[in-house]
């Protein structure tokens, strides 16, 4: 680095590079300290288990063998994957129309719709859980409304796998809508008008003009929400069934109630492994965007 004025005027500016590195250093250090290092240590601690005699540690895949041979643990993993998959599909189906509407609609109604779509972001999930019990639970508001017009009782989703699905979908609508709207910003009005001019219908415009442009945003939205849902805790804990449980409550219970950190960490490592796959999708799509 040079302190002569010339270096600031001519050619590349080495000072700017250093500034960038300094600015990014704190987040990178925090990520290394609080995310990367715990992952490495977790993998180490579940693969090098203490010996029976209490002296030293040796390599063993016993805890992983137990997880993948234990039907109870596998059921928990399946229900987590099922919940995550169902939520991701529902989120795209619900949020894409909202995002399309908000991209193309103007006026006061659109502002209200946007406000409603972003609202769940400001509701803590514990409050949401109890509200869902009140509204969708047995003898809840929905039941009362249906009864008052003479319709029969519905079977409440509370304490079934659908309880967390409803809560998680509602909770993740704002993030998904925001990402999709920002993706739709890349679709220019001209390209749509051009397509209409040559006689494309609404569906053709969506399929051939809009979707190809925002496929990347959909991928980003899905990988973001999937990462959050896979590791969610409060909603499945309060609204879900006792068994099978999602990985979040299962890990917490193994760690704290059963006092079994080794198996809890094993479950966590298996959860990382699944999340890394979704994380890679996200990284790949960001990298592809940058390369353009």
């Amino acid at each position: 680095m040079s302190l002569t004025p010339a270096s600031d005027i001519v050619g590349k500016k080495p000072g700017r590079g250093l500034t960038g590195l300094l600015l990014v250093a704190i987040p990178v250090l925090l990520v290394c300290w609080m995310v990367i290092w715990p992952i490495i240590s977790a993998i180490g601690r579940t693969l090098w288990l203490p010996n029976d005699g209490g002296t030293g540690r040796s390599f063993s895949v016993e805890t992983y063998k137990f997880f993948f041979s234990d039907q109870y643990s596998l059921n928990n993993l399946y229900v987590t994957l099922w919940t995550t998959g169902v939520c991701a599909v529902l989120l795209v189906l619900i949020c894409l129309p909202i995002a399309l509407y908000l991209r193309f609609a103007k006026g006061r109604l659109a502002a209200y719709v946007q406000g409603l779509a972003i609202f769940p972001m400001f509701v803590p999930s514990i409050i949401l859980s109890y509200a869902i019990i009140r509204v969708l639970g047995p003898n809840g508001t929905v039941d009362l409304l249906l009864n008052s017009v003479g319709l029969p009782h519905i079977r409440s989703p509370y304490l079934t796998p659908w309880g967390p699905v409803i809560g998680l979908v509602w909770d993740n609508i704002p993030l998904t809508v925001l990402i999709l709207i920002s993706g739709l910003g890349a679709v220019s009005n001209q390209s749509i008008e051009a397509a209409r001019d040559v006689g494309a219908g609404r569906f053709a415009v969506l399929w051939h003009i809009i979707l190809p442009r925002i496929s990347n945003s959909i991928l980003v939205a899905v990988s973001f929400t999937v990462l959050g849902i896979f590791s969610s805790f409060t909603l499945p804990y309060v609204l879900g069934p006792a068994a099978p449980e999602m990985m979040g409550p299962f890990m917490q219970r193994t760690f704290r109630d059963l006092n079994d950190p080794t198996n809890a960490i094993t479950q966590a490592v298996i959860a990382f492994a699944f999340c890394i796959v979704f994380g890679l999708f996200y990284v790949r799509s960001v990298a592809k965007n940058r390369a353009r």
Binding site: Y130, I133, G137, P138, L159, V238, P241
Partner: peptide, 19 residues
């Protein structure tokens, strides 16, 4: 209740009785 549901705490049981 509901063919074998179990609430996740003391309070939730009371809530169901209250409802």
């Amino acid at each position: 209740f509901d063919n074998g549901a179990y609430t996740s705490g003391n309070t939730q049981s009371i809530q169901l009785l209250g409802q």
